[in-house]
């Protein structure tokens, strides 16, 4: 008879244990952790990216800057920091559909989209969207028209990609403020399109 492998404590318990050890060694300050967590829960999220997209939809000169020098144009909004050293913006068109992945880990443009959602970190997405993107997008609820080319971007360096979705029909004359709430996280990764209001 062999011994069953010893189960490690649950991750919540291990997290508490590690925090207790690091605090004891003076290596971490729980108040700094709290502030850090709050930043990513409340301040840095896909609303940032939505503001950038809405600006590009309403200001042709901004759109030109955004496509030419993504990092600098995004910085105009004050958005930058970790995982945003070099951001490249990919424009969806009538002919081309872009979709972004990180097969090696789960790299994601934090300053504009916040932390990645569970589907992006899931092995099925990471493994399959570089092999059968049309099928994967279909499973996720997006049918890309057969005559549209698909371009998949695997972010395997420090370059981060933000997708600029197509502006939906029925929004003529809307200003950036009105357009911002229409823009979804999923559309800015390329697994959805922005629906008409």
């Amino acid at each position: 008879m062999t011994d069953a492998p010893t189960r490690r404590p649950e991750p919540a318990q291990r997290t508490e244990a590690l925090e207790s050890l690091l605090v004891e060694r003076g290596l971490i300050d729980p108040a700094v952790m709290d502030k850090f967590i709050k930043t990513y829960e409340q301040d840095v999220g896909p609303l940032n990216g939505a503001k950038v997209v809405a600006a590009a939809w309403t200001d042709p000169e901004y759109k030109e800057r955004l496509l030419a020098e993504g990092t600098a144009a995004i910085k105009e909004f004050g958005f930058g920091g970790p995982q945003g050293e070099h951001i490249v913006v990919l424009e969806q068109t009538d002919d081309v559909h872009h979709v972004v992945v990180c097969t090696l880990c789960s790299c994601y443009p934090w300053p504009v989209l916040g932390l990645p959602p569970s589907w992006y970190k899931d092995p099925a997405y990471r493994a399959r969207v570089v092999r059968e993107p049309r099928k994967v997008l279909h499973e996720m609820g997006l049918d890309v028209p057969a005559d549209k080319k698909i371009e998949v971007w695997d972010s395997s360096s420090e370059v981060r990609y933000l997708v600029l979705p197509q502006r939906p029909a029925g929004t003529d004359g809307w200003d950036a403020e009105a357009l911002t709430p229409l823009v979804t996280r999923d559309a800015m990764v390329g697994v959805a399109v922005v629906a008409a209001p």
Binding site: Y40, E41, L115, W119, A124
Partner: peptide, 23 residues
């Protein structure tokens, strides 16, 4: 199969995830 996205998924599904992230 790929997971179907849900709108408004929070960054951390449980408190320990946020603490592990920050740590």
């Amino acid at each position: 199969p790929a997971k179907v996205p849900t709108p408004d998924e929070p960054p951390f599904s449980e408190p320990w995830e946020g603490r592990s992230f920050a740590m």
